[in-house]
Computed example of a mutant assay.
Amino acid sequence: MLFKQSLIGVILVCMNKLNSVSLLKVEQCSKTDTLNEETLQILSRSIIPELEGKHKGEAGKIAVIGGSSEYTGAPYFSAITALKVGADLVYVITTKEAAPVIKSYSPDLIVIPYPLDSNLIEILKRMHVIIIGPGLGRDPDVMDRFYSIIDMCRNLKKPLVIDADGLYAVYKNITVIKDYPSPGIIMTPNFIEAQRIKNAIPSEHIPWYSYWGDFVTVLLKGEMDQYKSGNASFDWTITKGGSGRRAGGQGDILSGALGTFFNWALKSNICDDKNSTMLIQSISTYAAAKFTRECNFKAYEKHGRSMLASDMLQEIHSVFESTFLE
Protein backbone atom coordinates (compact mmCIF):
# COMPACT_ATOMS: atom_id res chain seq x y z
CA MET A 1 0.00 0.00 0.00
CA LEU A 2 2.86 2.40 0.79
CA PHE A 3 4.28 1.80 -2.68
CA LYS A 4 0.89 2.38 -4.33
CA GLN A 5 0.38 5.67 -2.48
CA SER A 6 3.87 6.92 -3.36
CA LEU A 7 3.45 5.91 -7.00
CA ILE A 8 0.18 7.82 -7.29
CA GLY A 9 1.90 10.89 -5.89
CA VAL A 10 4.81 10.55 -8.30
CA ILE A 11 2.52 10.27 -11.32
CA LEU A 12 0.55 13.35 -10.27
CA VAL A 13 3.82 15.29 -9.96
CA CYS A 14 4.76 14.09 -13.44
CA MET A 15 1.55 15.67 -14.76
CA ASN A 16 3.12 19.07 -14.16
CA LYS A 17 6.04 18.09 -16.41
CA LEU A 18 4.13 16.28 -19.15
CA ASN A 19 1.24 18.30 -20.49
CA SER A 20 0.66 15.72 -23.24
CA VAL A 21 -0.30 13.00 -20.76
CA SER A 22 -4.01 12.96 -20.12
CA LEU A 23 -5.51 12.85 -16.64
CA LEU A 24 -7.44 9.74 -17.70
CA LYS A 25 -4.18 7.89 -18.36
CA VAL A 26 -2.75 8.99 -15.02
CA GLU A 27 -5.83 7.74 -13.20
CA GLN A 28 -5.55 4.40 -14.99
CA CYS A 29 -1.89 4.10 -14.06
CA SER A 30 -2.52 4.87 -10.41
CA LYS A 31 -4.90 1.93 -10.03
CA THR A 32 -2.10 -0.64 -10.05
CA ASP A 33 0.37 -1.71 -7.37
CA THR A 34 2.92 -2.59 -10.05
CA LEU A 35 4.78 -0.66 -12.72
CA ASN A 36 2.90 -1.48 -15.91
CA GLU A 37 4.30 -0.20 -19.20
CA GLU A 38 1.93 2.76 -19.40
CA THR A 39 3.08 3.93 -15.99
CA LEU A 40 6.73 3.36 -16.88
CA GLN A 41 6.34 5.37 -20.06
CA ILE A 42 4.93 8.33 -18.14
CA LEU A 43 7.64 8.15 -15.48
CA SER A 44 10.50 7.69 -17.94
CA ARG A 45 9.43 10.76 -19.90
CA SER A 46 9.35 12.77 -16.68
CA ILE A 47 13.06 12.28 -15.92
CA ILE A 48 14.26 13.92 -19.15
CA PRO A 49 15.87 17.23 -18.12
CA GLU A 50 15.19 20.56 -19.76
CA LEU A 51 18.08 21.99 -21.80
CA GLU A 52 17.51 25.64 -20.96
CA GLY A 53 19.53 27.23 -18.16
CA LYS A 54 21.99 24.35 -17.79
CA HIS A 55 25.74 24.51 -17.38
CA LYS A 56 28.19 22.03 -18.93
CA GLY A 57 28.24 18.89 -16.82
CA GLU A 58 24.79 19.26 -15.26
CA ALA A 59 23.24 16.78 -17.69
CA GLY A 60 25.77 14.16 -16.73
CA LYS A 61 29.40 13.19 -16.29
CA ILE A 62 29.62 9.51 -17.14
CA ALA A 63 32.65 7.22 -16.95
CA VAL A 64 33.01 4.04 -19.00
CA ILE A 65 35.68 1.74 -17.58
CA GLY A 66 36.67 -0.94 -20.04
CA GLY A 67 38.45 -1.68 -23.26
CA SER A 68 41.60 -3.66 -23.95
CA SER A 69 43.97 -4.32 -26.83
CA GLU A 70 41.49 -6.88 -28.20
CA TYR A 71 38.28 -4.94 -27.57
CA THR A 72 38.13 -1.24 -28.38
CA GLY A 73 34.68 -1.08 -29.98
CA ALA A 74 32.70 -1.99 -26.86
CA PRO A 75 33.71 0.99 -24.68
CA TYR A 76 33.30 3.28 -27.68
CA PHE A 77 29.72 2.15 -28.33
CA SER A 78 28.85 2.53 -24.66
CA ALA A 79 30.49 5.95 -24.28
CA ILE A 80 29.26 7.53 -27.52
CA THR A 81 25.71 6.37 -26.74
CA ALA A 82 25.81 7.95 -23.28
CA LEU A 83 26.96 11.17 -24.93
CA LYS A 84 24.46 11.14 -27.82
CA VAL A 85 21.55 10.33 -25.49
CA GLY A 86 22.33 13.49 -23.59
CA ALA A 87 25.22 13.33 -21.11
CA ASP A 88 27.50 16.38 -21.30
CA LEU A 89 30.86 14.73 -20.67
CA VAL A 90 31.82 11.09 -21.10
CA TYR A 91 35.15 9.65 -20.03
CA VAL A 92 36.59 6.34 -21.20
CA ILE A 93 39.09 4.92 -18.73
CA THR A 94 41.00 2.16 -20.48
CA THR A 95 44.37 0.52 -21.04
CA LYS A 96 47.36 2.30 -22.55
CA GLU A 97 47.11 0.06 -25.62
CA ALA A 98 43.42 0.78 -26.20
CA ALA A 99 43.43 4.50 -25.43
CA PRO A 100 44.85 5.85 -28.73
CA VAL A 101 42.58 3.55 -30.75
CA ILE A 102 39.44 4.72 -28.94
CA LYS A 103 40.60 8.34 -29.21
CA SER A 104 40.73 7.88 -32.99
CA TYR A 105 37.06 6.85 -33.10
CA SER A 106 35.73 10.17 -31.81
CA PRO A 107 37.14 13.51 -30.63
CA ASP A 108 34.03 13.95 -28.49
CA LEU A 109 35.12 11.41 -25.88
CA ILE A 110 37.65 12.04 -23.11
CA VAL A 111 39.94 9.00 -23.14
CA ILE A 112 42.24 8.38 -20.18
CA PRO A 113 44.73 5.49 -19.84
CA TYR A 114 44.48 3.77 -16.46
CA PRO A 115 45.90 6.21 -13.90
CA LEU A 116 47.38 5.41 -10.50
CA ASP A 117 44.75 4.52 -7.91
CA SER A 118 44.97 7.90 -6.19
CA ASN A 119 44.29 9.70 -9.47
CA LEU A 120 41.52 7.28 -10.35
CA ILE A 121 39.70 8.03 -7.12
CA GLU A 122 39.76 11.73 -7.91
CA ILE A 123 38.29 11.04 -11.37
CA LEU A 124 35.59 8.76 -9.97
CA LYS A 125 34.58 11.40 -7.41
CA ARG A 126 33.60 13.74 -10.24
CA MET A 127 31.48 11.18 -12.09
CA HIS A 128 27.70 10.93 -11.72
CA VAL A 129 27.41 7.32 -12.96
CA ILE A 130 30.09 4.73 -13.74
CA ILE A 131 29.68 2.02 -16.37
CA ILE A 132 32.15 -0.82 -15.93
CA GLY A 133 32.78 -3.83 -18.13
CA PRO A 134 32.51 -3.13 -21.90
CA GLY A 135 35.57 -4.68 -23.56
CA LEU A 136 37.31 -5.09 -20.20
CA GLY A 137 38.77 -8.53 -20.94
CA ARG A 138 39.31 -11.39 -18.51
CA ASP A 139 43.00 -11.25 -17.74
CA PRO A 140 43.67 -11.93 -14.00
CA ASP A 141 45.24 -8.47 -13.61
CA VAL A 142 42.10 -6.94 -15.13
CA MET A 143 39.92 -8.86 -12.68
CA ASP A 144 41.98 -7.53 -9.77
CA ARG A 145 41.62 -4.00 -11.12
CA PHE A 146 37.85 -4.49 -11.38
CA TYR A 147 37.57 -5.54 -7.74
CA SER A 148 39.69 -2.59 -6.66
CA ILE A 149 37.46 -0.18 -8.60
CA ILE A 150 34.32 -1.72 -7.10
CA ASP A 151 35.75 -1.09 -3.63
CA MET A 152 36.48 2.54 -4.54
CA CYS A 153 32.97 3.03 -5.90
CA ARG A 154 31.45 1.39 -2.84
CA ASN A 155 33.28 3.81 -0.55
CA LEU A 156 32.21 6.73 -2.74
CA LYS A 157 28.62 5.40 -2.98
CA LYS A 158 28.69 5.78 -6.75
CA PRO A 159 25.85 4.41 -8.91
CA LEU A 160 27.14 1.66 -11.20
CA VAL A 161 26.10 -0.11 -14.38
CA ILE A 162 27.89 -3.45 -14.78
CA ASP A 163 27.92 -5.16 -18.18
CA ALA A 164 29.90 -7.59 -20.35
CA ASP A 165 33.23 -8.67 -18.81
CA GLY A 166 32.30 -6.86 -15.63
CA LEU A 167 29.60 -9.51 -15.22
CA TYR A 168 32.23 -12.22 -15.66
CA ALA A 169 34.22 -10.61 -12.84
CA VAL A 170 31.12 -10.70 -10.62
CA TYR A 171 30.66 -14.38 -11.48
CA LYS A 172 34.25 -15.09 -10.41
CA ASN A 173 33.74 -13.28 -7.08
CA ILE A 174 30.02 -13.33 -6.41
CA THR A 175 30.22 -11.48 -3.07
CA VAL A 176 32.12 -8.43 -4.38
CA ILE A 177 28.94 -6.38 -4.86
CA LYS A 178 26.94 -7.82 -1.98
CA ASP A 179 25.17 -5.18 0.12
CA TYR A 180 26.30 -2.39 -2.19
CA PRO A 181 24.86 0.89 -0.89
CA SER A 182 22.26 3.16 -2.48
CA PRO A 183 22.04 4.44 -5.22
CA GLY A 184 23.13 0.96 -6.15
CA ILE A 185 24.09 -1.19 -9.11
CA ILE A 186 22.20 -2.23 -12.24
CA MET A 187 23.58 -5.32 -14.00
CA THR A 188 22.67 -6.07 -17.62
CA PRO A 189 23.40 -9.74 -18.42
CA ASN A 190 22.31 -11.65 -21.49
CA PHE A 191 20.97 -15.19 -21.10
CA ILE A 192 24.37 -16.91 -20.89
CA GLU A 193 25.82 -14.31 -18.52
CA ALA A 194 22.76 -14.56 -16.28
CA GLN A 195 22.93 -18.35 -16.14
CA ARG A 196 26.60 -18.24 -15.22
CA ILE A 197 25.98 -15.80 -12.36
CA LYS A 198 22.88 -17.66 -11.19
CA ASN A 199 24.85 -20.90 -10.94
CA ALA A 200 27.48 -19.18 -8.79
CA ILE A 201 24.94 -18.04 -6.20
CA PRO A 202 24.20 -20.43 -3.29
CA SER A 203 21.34 -22.65 -4.37
CA GLU A 204 19.34 -21.99 -1.23
CA HIS A 205 19.05 -18.30 -2.07
CA ILE A 206 15.75 -17.67 -3.88
CA PRO A 207 15.21 -15.63 -5.96
CA TRP A 208 18.82 -15.51 -7.10
CA TYR A 209 18.74 -11.89 -8.25
CA SER A 210 17.99 -10.62 -4.72
CA TYR A 211 21.19 -12.20 -3.36
CA TRP A 212 23.14 -8.90 -3.24
CA GLY A 213 20.60 -6.79 -1.34
CA ASP A 214 17.96 -4.17 -2.09
CA PHE A 215 20.08 -1.89 -4.24
CA VAL A 216 21.52 -4.36 -6.76
CA THR A 217 19.10 -5.11 -9.59
CA VAL A 218 19.23 -7.02 -12.87
CA LEU A 219 18.07 -6.46 -16.45
CA LEU A 220 17.87 -9.80 -18.25
CA LYS A 221 18.40 -9.03 -21.95
CA GLY A 222 17.03 -11.14 -24.75
CA GLU A 223 14.05 -11.61 -27.05
CA MET A 224 12.18 -10.04 -24.17
CA ASP A 225 13.82 -7.76 -21.60
CA GLN A 226 13.00 -8.59 -17.98
CA TYR A 227 13.82 -6.36 -15.05
CA LYS A 228 14.28 -8.13 -11.70
CA SER A 229 14.74 -6.65 -8.25
CA GLY A 230 14.20 -7.62 -4.65
CA ASN A 231 10.71 -6.11 -4.81
CA ALA A 232 8.35 -7.54 -7.44
CA SER A 233 6.37 -4.28 -7.50
CA PHE A 234 9.21 -2.67 -9.42
CA ASP A 235 9.71 -5.51 -11.93
CA TRP A 236 8.57 -5.46 -15.55
CA THR A 237 8.92 -7.14 -18.95
CA ILE A 238 9.22 -5.57 -22.43
CA THR A 239 8.47 -7.53 -25.57
CA LYS A 240 7.83 -4.75 -28.11
CA GLY A 241 10.50 -3.44 -30.44
CA GLY A 242 13.86 -4.97 -31.25
CA SER A 243 14.53 -7.54 -33.92
CA GLY A 244 16.10 -10.95 -34.38
CA ARG A 245 19.42 -9.37 -35.36
CA ARG A 246 22.04 -9.80 -32.61
CA ALA A 247 25.05 -7.88 -33.90
CA GLY A 248 27.87 -7.27 -31.43
CA GLY A 249 27.75 -3.92 -29.67
CA GLN A 250 24.03 -3.73 -28.94
CA GLY A 251 24.53 -4.47 -25.25
CA ASP A 252 27.17 -1.76 -25.08
CA ILE A 253 24.72 0.72 -26.57
CA LEU A 254 22.21 -0.22 -23.87
CA SER A 255 24.77 0.20 -21.07
CA GLY A 256 25.69 3.68 -22.29
CA ALA A 257 22.06 4.76 -22.54
CA LEU A 258 21.42 3.36 -19.08
CA GLY A 259 24.29 5.37 -17.61
CA THR A 260 22.71 8.61 -18.80
CA PHE A 261 19.13 7.71 -17.87
CA PHE A 262 20.26 6.48 -14.43
CA ASN A 263 21.87 9.84 -13.73
CA TRP A 264 18.80 11.76 -14.90
CA ALA A 265 16.48 9.65 -12.76
CA LEU A 266 18.67 10.20 -9.70
CA LYS A 267 18.55 13.97 -10.25
CA SER A 268 14.83 14.10 -10.97
CA ASN A 269 13.68 13.91 -7.32
CA ILE A 270 10.92 11.74 -8.63
CA CYS A 271 10.31 10.14 -5.26
CA ASP A 272 11.68 10.85 -1.80
CA ASP A 273 10.44 7.92 0.28
CA LYS A 274 12.31 4.76 1.25
CA ASN A 275 11.47 3.13 -2.09
CA SER A 276 13.05 5.91 -4.14
CA THR A 277 16.25 4.07 -5.11
CA MET A 278 14.41 1.00 -6.37
CA LEU A 279 11.90 3.13 -8.28
CA ILE A 280 14.71 5.18 -9.86
CA GLN A 281 16.57 2.05 -10.93
CA SER A 282 13.42 0.55 -12.43
CA ILE A 283 12.47 3.68 -14.39
CA SER A 284 15.95 4.35 -15.75
CA THR A 285 16.39 0.71 -16.80
CA TYR A 286 13.04 0.73 -18.55
CA ALA A 287 13.95 3.93 -20.40
CA ALA A 288 17.27 2.43 -21.58
CA ALA A 289 15.78 -0.91 -22.60
CA LYS A 290 12.85 0.69 -24.44
CA PHE A 291 15.18 3.12 -26.19
CA THR A 292 17.65 0.43 -27.27
CA ARG A 293 14.96 -1.89 -28.58
CA GLU A 294 13.50 0.94 -30.66
CA CYS A 295 16.92 1.85 -32.08
CA ASN A 296 17.39 -1.79 -33.01
CA PHE A 297 13.95 -1.97 -34.63
CA LYS A 298 14.47 1.20 -36.68
CA ALA A 299 17.94 0.17 -37.83
CA TYR A 300 16.72 -3.30 -38.79
CA GLU A 301 13.89 -1.79 -40.84
CA LYS A 302 16.51 -0.01 -42.95
CA HIS A 303 19.33 -2.56 -43.08
CA GLY A 304 17.80 -5.95 -42.38
CA ARG A 305 20.27 -8.77 -41.81
CA SER A 306 23.20 -6.49 -42.62
CA MET A 307 22.39 -4.24 -39.66
CA LEU A 308 25.33 -3.35 -37.41
CA ALA A 309 25.48 -1.70 -34.01
CA SER A 310 26.85 1.42 -35.68
CA ASP A 311 23.59 1.61 -37.66
CA MET A 312 21.72 1.82 -34.36
CA LEU A 313 23.73 4.89 -33.39
CA GLN A 314 22.24 6.70 -36.39
CA GLU A 315 18.74 6.16 -34.97
CA ILE A 316 19.41 7.70 -31.55
CA HIS A 317 18.06 11.17 -32.30
CA SER A 318 14.79 10.15 -33.93
CA VAL A 319 14.07 7.39 -31.41
CA PHE A 320 14.78 9.67 -28.46
CA GLU A 321 12.45 12.33 -29.86
CA SER A 322 9.57 9.94 -30.56
CA THR A 323 9.94 7.95 -27.32
CA PHE A 324 10.49 10.67 -24.75
CA LEU A 325 9.60 14.08 -26.18
CA GLU A 326 6.63 13.84 -28.54
Rank of each mutant, 00 (worst) to 15 (best):
S148W: 04
P49A: 07
S282C: 05
I150V: 08
T285Y: 02
K198Q: 15
W208Q: 05
I280T: 09
L7A: 06
R154F: 08
K61T: 15
I201Q: 09
A63N: 08
T292D: 02
V142M: 15
I47P: 00
H55P: 00
V10I: 08
L325N: 03
K302C: 11
R154H: 14
K172F: 02
A164D: 07
K96I: 13
A287K: 01
M15G: 03
I253F: 03
M1R: 15
G222Y: 07
I316W: 01
A74V: 11
K221M: 06
D117N: 13
K17P: 00
S243C: 14
N296P: 08
L18G: 01
A87K: 00
E301Q: 14
V10F: 00
P202T: 05
K103A: 09
A79C: 15
V161K: 10
S22K: 13
S20P: 00
E27R: 13
S255Y: 12
S106W: 08
S282W: 02
S322G: 01
L24I: 11
Y168I: 13
L258K: 08
I253M: 09
S106T: 11
C295M: 11
L35W: 01
A309F: 04
L167T: 05
A59N: 12
E50S: 10
K4F: 03
Y300F: 15
I123L: 14
I283S: 03
G248A: 14
Q314G: 06
T39E: 00
G304S: 12
Q281D: 08
P75K: 07
T260S: 08
F324G: 01
A299R: 02
G9K: 09
M143N: 09
